[in-house]
């Protein structure tokens, strides 16, 4: 059964039937938003049942659209949180990616600005490495990007997509060794992106992210994680009562090969480790549970099949 990421938008009336349907079919609800009279579900559903869900949702004015980024956590790295980059350049990109289902976190570097003085500290590096992918929003000048980028990528081991003012070709030319994706003509700007060509640029960012993540997913498929992250999320929701008291929009954030659980590490790491996934197998046996550098959250990295020899 292949699960595909989708977004369901519909009225709030009888939407619980859709949730039940998705769960009965073996899918997972990643995130649920209720906005006034409307409900937005981000879910992973079985590929062959998309037509069925659409058909059942139709009388409820529900609409099912593919959302390639559901179930991923993306870091949008901005050079600073000063007025030079906020709100438009950074927030517009972060917000636009979110519409396609990704959970984006904005990482504002403390000293990312400047050409010679740009640097990144260990906390920033570790936080970025906790994500599935990092989108770097750089400035408008080739000279600066060429000189500062090596300092900003040091130690980053997740795929990087570089957005900057120079053209895509120029970015490819000045960045060495190459990164996973490039989007040109998205540098520093001070106005809101609302014209069609600017939105087209943001679409280009999304398609670049999708391309890079698809490649990463193909890599993962060769040696899949011992349990699907979405399934592990469901198990934690069932077994740990305290997670329902977390006020964050996504108490458990799903990544491509792991989860971020927004509970304090000291209290809950042991609890999570001992939760049975299936008879005789606990989470601790198939995943590494480590403290996150983001607040005191817990990071679960599911180990691949080749390491555990277990597939649940």
């Amino acid at each position: 059964m292949t699960l595909v990421p989708v977004t369901y938008k519909g009225g709030i009336y009888r939407h619980d039937e859709i949730i039940d349907l998705i769960e009965d079919l073996g899918g997972y609800i990643i995130q649920k938003h209720v906005i006034a009279q409307e409900v937005v579900l981000q879910a992973l559903v079985p590929k062959e049942d998309i037509a069925l869900i659409s058909a059942i949702g139709k009388p409820l004015t529900g609409e099912l659209t593919p959302s390639p980024l559901v179930g991923t956590e993306i870091a949008v790295v901005t050079m600073s949180l000063e007025i030079h980059h906020l709100p438009h350049a950074s927030c517009d990109v972060a917000e636009y990616i979110r519409r396609f289902g990704a959970k984006t976190n904005m990482v504002g570097l403390a000293r990312g600005f400047g050409k010679r003085i740009a640097q990144m500290n260990d906390e920033e590096r570790d936080v970025i490495n906790e994500h599935d992918l990092a989108v770097y929003l750089l400035g408008d000048f080739e000279t600066c990007i060429r000189q500062k980028f090596p300092a900003l990528r040091r130690g980053i081991n997740v795929p990087i997509i570089v957005c900057g003012g120079p053209s895509r070709e120029a970015l490819q030319r000045i960045i060495d060794p190459p990164v996973d994706g490039y989007v040109g003509n998205v540098g520093r700007f001070m106005h809101r992106t609302k014209e069609s060509e600017e939105l087209a640029k943001l679409d280009e960012v999304v398609s670049e992210i999708t391309r890079v993540l698809d490649r990463k997913r193909d890599e993962i498929a060769k040696d899949p994680p011992s349990v699907s992250p979405a399934r592990l999320m469901d198990i934690i929701y069932d077994q740990v009562g305290e997670i329902h008291e977390v006020l964050s929009p996504t108490p458990i954030t799903v990544q491509t090969t792991g989860l971020r659980v927004k509970l304090p590490y000291d209290t809950f790491a042991r609890v999570l480790r001992d939760i049975p996934v299936e008879e005789g197998i606990t989470i601790g046996e198939i995943a590494n549970i480590i403290p996150s550098r983001m607040r005191d959250y817990i990071l679960i990295r599911i180990r691949p099949f080749s390491e555990t020899n277990v597939m649940v």
Partner: peptide, 9 residues
Amino acid sequence: TEEAGGNYY
């Protein structure tokens, strides 16, 4: 000194 950068600025 950079044409594209100048236009953005």
